[in-house]
Nucleic acid binder design. Structure first.
Lengths: 200, 200
DNA sequence: TTCAATGGCTACAGTCGATGTAGTGATTCA
DNA sequence: TGAATCACTACATCGACTGTAGCCATTGAA
């Protein structure tokens, strides 16, 4: 099943990982723009140029492995049981998409760091928003195809946008209140339920 | 009433306007990153350094005069008539906040260009979204204070986030479809109505 | 085993956005 | 009128990011 990649590929992944770990280590001690790409590369013992072979930008190294799993949401939509209602499917898709990544990050120490930096650094925040936005479009399309009688090209994006907006806002607000993981998760679920009510 | 500003201030505004117009002129012919700040400054006949005295970044010259008017939304909330329902107030606040800036732009030729560039240039899109994001928290607080019986510290941010998310997503989707200003506006209104339904 | 192709990595040079600093000259105000 | 203010300038510098050409380990086929 799982093909073991060749030596070349393994080496590549190793330097990628080294870059991520070096970056995290450095960002833990200093603020975002006090850490240069050159330093990260140096700490990972590669050339600065190599950094950009692995990541498109300085922000991306912090967002590594945080790809929004749109595919999981799409699966959730595809797997809907006959007769299952729109709100149910939508909530299930969102949960798949969000909590999967969320959980993976919680186990590593990365989640907290990322949250802290994203809150303080506009560039990072912007890049994150961008990712969610592109994910939204895909999700909206899939949802519309699954419920062509309920959604059109205007309401589908609006609905998905509302979901993502509500969940993000409640998470941010909870995090800023200093809530723990469970409370944050609860707030997110509550937000989903709220939006779900708008499409009975 | 209207104090006429001194000569110094008028000159300052003139160079600011010259920079904006030079930028617009250049962006009309070439794509976003094929236009350098140096060129814009050159076309406006000022030094490159002066550009950054007027705008924090290259993106900002295109987002000039597009400040999100949170204050207008707060007014709308404060002015609510006795007995007015939550959804009505919320929609009114959002409309104040968004369409005010929107309309001012339609009269100038800037709106179309901005829409086109924002749709194609992620950096610009992100910066725009970010503005709305920062406005959210304020709005949520005010709304919760206005309806303490209906909203708590979890639902208020969620609701506002849903609104902003829905409106943004529908606008982006409409713009990418190539819709005109009226259709975009319609999509935004529809998005608001959708979310409003979740709080009867 | 050999050899050519592949591809990750490097050094080097360069572009561009953005900021710090010191100075000039036109306004502003006492 | 004289001093303070402030928009603007030239100059230097930093750091993110890109293009290019070459090196060398890995790979796959002869």
């Amino acid at each position: 099943m799982v093909e073991k990649p060749g030596l070349r590929e393994r080496k590549k992944q190793r330097t990628r990982q080294a870059l991520i770990e070096a970056a995290v280590r450095l960002f833990e001690h200093r603020s975002y723009d006090q850490v240069t790409v050159a330093e990260i590369a140096d700490a990972a013992e590669v050339s600065p140029r190599t950094f950009f072979l692995h990541f498109q930008s300085k922000e991306d190294v912090l967002l590594a492995n945080t790809d929004v799993r749109v595919d999981l949401a799409l699966e959730a939509i595809a797997e809907r049981r006959a007769g299952e209602r729109l709100p149910g499917v939508l909530v299930r898709a969102m949960e798949q998409m969000i909590f999967n990544a969320w959980d993976r990050d919680l186990s590593s120490g990365l989640a907290a760091l990322r949250a802290r930096l994203a809150a303080s650094e506009p560039a990072l925040q912007a890049r994150l928003l961008q990712r969610y936005l592109t994910a939204q479009a895909e999700l909206a399309q899939a949802l519309q195809r699954a419920f062509p009688d309920r959604l059109d090209t205007t309401t589908a994006p609006a609905l998905v946008g509302a979901m993502v907006g509500a969940v993000s806002a409640s998470a941010v607000s909870a995090l800023q209140r200093g809530d723990g993981p469970d409370e944050v998760r609860n707030a997110m679920r509550q937000a989903m339920a709220l939006v779900a009510r708008s499409v009975t």
